[in-house]
Nucleic acid binder design. Structure first.
Lengths: 248, 248
DNA sequence: CGCGGCCTTGAGCAACATCAACAATAGTGG
DNA sequence: CCACTATTGTTGATGTTGCTCAAGGCCGCG
């Protein structure tokens, strides 16, 4: 957390994105035991589940990106969360009723399906499971609070920077060691807008600004962080918060 | 759930706010077993816990209103959730690290304290507990997603209406039978602004508008719903969502 | 190589913020 | 019970951010 006085870096850089070697497989992310019947693939652009569906299963995301979103009657949309491998998705049984949000596969996706009916018996074999579920949900909540703060109180520029920083950091936590400064971020500018409460047009302008200032480049889903320190500064995030994103 | 075809009402009125007789005590809301050592009172205006505090306990809110909030370095604040009796507050152990949000008592408050150290043993006696915790967290998440949608995609007018409708509905679910259309809502206009991502000045203007249109009156913490149907309409909420607020 | 989806840019405008002064309220101590 | 004070609410004038509308360019894919 301390030292690591890298050249132009504030020090946060080294601490936040350690270059440790790590598993390239998805092995570490199966929080729920996987059952053979359970694996399912969903192709990019399709819904894992939709608003109003009566969820009778929860999903453990094994591979790919998923966006959780809500929708108003008139079509306005809000992305409320991005899920990366390891996430647990879906509606708990008896939080009865329909899902109030949908789940869109941003890339081709693999999930392992745990039917709600199986949840109770599963918990008997593995009594730690509900508590892990609770922790996962607590983390989702925490992230949602963060987004709320961003959308409610930050400027457009700050919001976009914040989102990019968050996604980059969370992604990088999964595949450390890869070329650090570049990644595939499977989002359109419209989706960034839906996540930040902005128009795609305005997102575009903000991104132009960040590109001209040589902080970040984002073009057709290719993200490149040019100046991590300034990005953190623009996003207005304290390092502690960033580390919280990394927890599971 | 059906009938109750009240005069000018669309019918939603009766469905949403059933006038059933109900427990006036808080008996029903102790989701966690209560331990004698645990009860604690906090007076209005004080923090239950603060941003950055290392939560070593979780709280079951027995009585009073609590606001969960975050804060940016420069003082901008965002209220991310309102907790009513029955809520479970605090940070789970090993979602280690500090709380990223604080908890402000809006009224005098009674909580029962469950030290994290006790959580594991408690779960052995009562194996249902972690699952109940998970459900509570899932509900918080759901609410947070709702707020995100509101702040991200609704106009100021819609946001304020939405918040009032939510709080009124949740409150009324606890004390049904009381004078339906009036309640004490322990918020300042500034706090409403902090929850909706608006300025207190603008909140004031919106409230003025709603008052002139005889939809809602809110003055020094006294809330009066004049036209529930139009409030629902302005808030742009489907009844299903409202019912979701009522679940625990 | 042509088509559809995505990005880019400009001009004008609406919603909300900011700043500032003042009024109403409720809580306080005499 | 009253006077005083701090807090909260109200209103107007003005400024800025981000939205809307619209046209055109770029990219990737079939």
């Amino acid at each position: 957390m301390t030292r690591c006085p890298r050249s132009t870096s504030t020090g946060a850089d080294g601490a936040l994105w350690p270059a440790a070697a790590a598993p390239s497989s998805t092995e570490g992310y199966r929080l729920l035991p996987r059952y053979r019947l359970g694996d399912r693939k969903i192709e990019a652009g399709r819904d894992l589940f939709s608003v109003g569906s009566t969820g009778n299963a929860i999903f453990n995301l094994i591979d790919g990106w998923v966006a959780l979103y809500t929708q108003l009657e008139d079509g306005r949309r809000q992305i409320v969360q991005f899920a990366l491998p390891g996430a647990i998705l879906g509606v708990l049984p008896s939080n009865r009723s329909q899902a109030t949000f949908g789940a869109l596969a941003l890339t081709d996706v693999v999930v392992s399906v745990i039917p709600n009916s199986m949840l109770a018996t599963l918990s008997r074999d593995e009594p730690e499971l509900p508590m892990r579920l609770a922790r996962s949900l607590a983390r989702d909540c925490s992230l949602a609070f963060d987004h709320l703060t961003s959308i409610g109180r930050r400027s457009a520029r700050e919001r976009v920077a914040h989102l990019i920083l968050e996604l980059f950091t969370r992604y990088r936590a999964q595949w450390p060691g890869n070329r650090i400064e570049e990644m595939l971020l499977p989002l359109t500018q419209e989706q960034i807008g839906d996540a930040t409460g902005l128009t795609s047009v305005h997102v575009n302008r903000v991104l132009s600004g960040l590109r001209k200032e040589r902080i970040v480049e984002f073009h057709y889903r290719r993200l490149r962080i040019l100046d991590p320190d300034r990005l953190i500064e623009v996003a207005g995030v304290e390092p502690e918060v960033v580390t919280a994103w990394l927890e599971r």
